[in-house]
Write a protein that binds this DNA or RNA. Structure first.
Lengths: 257, 257
DNA sequence: CTGTGGGGTATGGTCTGACCATATTGTGGT
DNA sequence: ACCACAATATGGTCAGACCATACCCCACAG
């Protein structure tokens, strides 16, 4: 018999089976956010497993952002399908960051690409994005408040940039960017403090906003790019890719600019 | 006293405390992928909690892709820091898909943006990406095998496109795209079957590969865009954004082209 | 010397049954 | 009508046991 071509038998732990069946039920019964799952004891009985196994499955579902558990009695207690599937992504990205598998350069490059793309999209049909434009303007005004602490500035800055992505209508990108901003909030505050003055950033924001509102796609893209360079000058210093082994010269480019 | 402004005290479950302490230890001790965590019994004893609580924490860490548990004895058994933090992202995205909060259009738009950007990056310095180019060529050859079942074609196709993103050097994008491809594998197979013939796709792949190798950034970007249109014609049909309420006309664009 | 078989043991996986804290619901008394 | 209190259902936690697995090591046979 051949020695290769074998693979170890897939050991299926019971909590994984429980997990799968719960997911199936959610899908089959068409459960929506806010709906309740059966209690742990009941699930354990029906699946004929121990409550501990059910609990491990619930922990996974909770980590994945599918359910949220509350104690007590009543129609809203127990495991409830949650409506905020994004926070799981946040936890993931935050962990990746802590375990230093990602660099700041990667994150800013990604932001540049996504937000530029989104801004161009938004600028193509500014009339369709009244809500997002309003959100952007609100954030703009909040950022003008004198004596604003860095933490709050970052908050409004996040709202502004998220509105851009939201205007693209792409929910995948919106979810990822939301999680990304949440994950790096601390670093963003540090960057603002290091920068000292937010005047340039606020001017950039206005420029982006006006470009989108005016439907000037090219200008909107350029404005986003310039803005990120101003916000993270240390990443775009004259030295060509000082710490980046390959790739990442995200500005000297854009084919046909 | 004011009635508002209060929020319920944050009940900290013990497994969350365990989780936090484990994360701290990983960071403080500088543990790297491959290193072992103490056994569940030992952790429970040192933290003075029950083994069940430790297990729930481990389940979360496993879901987050931080550790991977194996039974048995020996230096490689137990909870080991995993080197593949991507699988957690895969689970998340797959779940989001099942709960239908994401549309195929969003995914393809994202692919288009990311892979175009990556291809342009790679084409800018083709000499630095020998490894990725080799991987792409290998995938190209595998896809030429006659009588290839759709599943295997998708496998090689994924390898090809992933190599493009890898060549960008951006680990965040690489992780996200890897997870995305894994999440939609089933749909990709269906798309291939629906298409019937892969000749056009294979020709597109060659075109992308040659453009990157030749350092033709503009052509590389165009080739990627054309390829995705060929692969998902139903999304880019002549009807202007038939099912997309706003945004997403990802081709009639590229500012200053 | 080799190697081969088997026992010892540490690991995660699972189960049972209990108790606690919390929050709603029902009920009885005022 | 209102309020106090018991009943109850929920998740959270614990202790202790047993199982299957996989490695380690040593005695024993070749």
């Amino acid at each position: 018999m051949s020695d290769a071509g074998w693979r170890p038998v897939r050991r299926t732990r019971t909590f994984e089976e429980v997990l799968a069946q719960i997911e199936e039920r959610i899908e089959a019964d068409g459960l929506a956010p806010g709906d309740r799952l059966p209690g742990e004891r009941r699930l354990a009985e029906q699946l004929q497993v121990s409550r501990a196994s059910v609990r491990e499955a619930m922990r996974v579902l909770e980590t994945l952002g599918v359910v949220s558990s509350t104690v007590g009695r009543g129609p809203d207690a127990g495991a409830v399908l949650t409506a905020r599937p994004g926070s799981a992504l946040t936890d993931l990205l935050r962990l990746h960051l802590r375990l230093s598998s990602l660099s700041m350069r990667d994150i800013i490059d990604t932001r540049l690409m996504v937000e530029r793309w989104s801004a161009e999209h938004a600028a193509r049909h500014p009339d369709r994005h009244g809500a997002e434009l309003a959100a952007m303007e609100r954030a703009l005004e909040r950022m003008e408040r004198p004596g604003l602490p860095p933490e709050e500035f970052v908050e409004d800055d996040t709202a502004f940039h998220l509105a851009i992505v939201q205007a693209s209508g792409n929910r995948l990108l919106t979810a990822v960017m939301q999680a990304l901003r949440d994950s790096v909030r601390r670093y963003a505050v540090e960057a603002i403090v290091r920068l000292g003055d937010t005047a340039i950033l606020r001017r950039d924001h206005r420029r982006i906003f006006e470009a989108i509102k005016a439907g000037d796609t090219a200008e909107a893209g350029r404005a986003v790019a310039d803005h990120l360079v101003h916000a993270y000058p240390e990443l775009f210093g004259g030295s060509p890719s000082s710490s980046a082994p390959h790739g990442a010269c995200p500005l000297d480019e854009e084919p046909g600019r």
